[in-house]
Write a protein that binds this DNA or RNA. Structure first.
Lengths: 250, 250
DNA sequence: GAAATAGTGTCTGTAAGACACTATTCC
DNA sequence: GGAATAGTGTCTTACAGACACTATTTC
């Protein structure tokens, strides 16, 4: 019993306690100036009728592919659609406490998705029960999804500081004000417009000018702003730190 | 078929492709001024004889517990030992590409462990083939463990900047020089002793003085340094940034 | 015209890094 | 004594945040 075949035989999955692997997606976008998360209303037990993060079982695919597929199914976007390709996806954390799903042992790999304004998902059949909910109104989710959402929000807030993630929430061409609106929506804090403007332009590779100007000013007045697109930086240096809160340190 | 029992029945694990869930641990420590990782020599197929990260199947336990148990088994430390409790453990990332294990679909939750100098693991039977290896000599591992190790090292280097993680690598009472030695070992860069000293003391909650002084100076001379212990900060503010390297930004 | 916004100028306090220097200890 | 280290002082430069101000645009 030393050849490889015997070891392969020795690892019959039925020898081990059954574990299911799922992906759950914390998909964030900004609608009407508010940070929103994509939720689905569960039609099945357990937690039937409760809201939950979109997710499902992993198939013969990578974990990343599973997350993007689930997101496509729940938003009603076609796999391969331009909108979907622009969605930034990254792994958040894996949740696997025994008992987190009453049916069986389920280990869930949570993903974080950042999207510019996607259409309201009403088209596809799978997506019929999915909708965007402002994060402050997104409590009381099924399973341990409250915790997953909370950690996803923390991660998103952190990453705005030291990565150009905010550009994933806006159109390919954007104004500095639109970018600032992302920060205020995600952080829930007002930022000084003038200082923010200078700061963004001073960070190498954060944004680059398109040379163009918007066709009109703001709805309530103001000059036509210049347009920018995302630069080639993957890290912001120096970082764009949010106002320090003592309680984040201890 | 609308009651919960029928749904539970509907989720018989044998309806789904078999997936195994494991934990793998990137355990880091500093020995002789070098950053080292705990590796095991595999005795079984696949990859028999190759070095790999310690790990194993998840049982009826949380993922965190599984990681700590695996670490205990491979280091030969007793579960519950003081040394083991002082090890800082955190989840790194989950790896689940199809084909990463030739036997079957294996999804591995990788953990990062930071330990002060643990004994060389020669005692227990499981630990007989485990040893600490300087990270620069730790290439060519089994499975996708090279990638896991690389991402673990990246994470460790990042976390030294903005968390008091370095204190997890030293004894409960330590000198500023010992702390600096952690930074130089993990970052692989020399740091200016004077500026480092002042910086560490200026960050609120990073270290606190014990009031004591070491019983003797350095091996090659120098005054008796003061002793410190870890403070109550969970984030360093302002952060202790490593010398900026352009290539980390793009 | 009134109100709002884009973008810039300036000042202040804090922090990082370079360099210098003293005092102390080990060999 | 010689060499290494602990710890502090000082100077320069960079940056964050506060505040002010002008120019431009919408209603």
């Amino acid at each position: 019993m030393t050849d490889e075949a015997s070891f392969l035989a020795g690892y019959d999955p039925r020898d081990y306690p059954a574990v299911a692997v799922t992906v759950d997606v914390v998909a964030l976008t900004i609608r009407d100036g508010k940070l929103c998360v994509l939720l689905v209303e569960r039609g099945e037990q357990p937690f039937a009728g409760r809201r939950a993060l979109p997710g499902g079982f992993v198939r013969e695919e990578t974990l990343d592919e599973a997350a993007r597929r689930e997101l496509a199914e729940e938003t009603g976007l076609l796999p391969g659609a331009k909108d979907l390709e622009r969605v930034h996806l990254e792994q958040l954390r894996t949740y696997g406490n025994p008992g987190r799903d009453p049916r069986m042992r389920v280990v869930s790999v949570a993903y974080l998705a950042f999207a510019p304004h996607l259409p309201e998902p009403t088209a596809g059949s799978d997506a019929a029960r999915a909708y965007w909910v402002p994060v402050e109104a997104a409590g009381d989710l099924a399973f341990d999804h409250d915790q997953i959402l909370a950690e996803g929000l923390d991660r998103a807030r952190d990453k705005l500081e030291y990565t150009p993630l905010a550009t994933a929430f806006v159109d390919p061409e954007f104004t500095i004000s639109e970018l600032r609106a992302v920060y205020t929506a995600v952080w829930g804090e007002e930022l000084h417009a003038g200082n923010f403007h200078r700061k963004v332009l001073s960070v190498p590779g954060f944004v680059e000018s398109t040379g163009e100007t918007a066709t009109r000013g703001g709805e309530r007045g103001g000059p036509k702003p210049k347009l920018y697109r995302a630069g080639d930086a993957t890290l912001l240096h120096p970082a764009l730190l949010r106002p320090t809160r003592e309680d984040r340190i201890r």
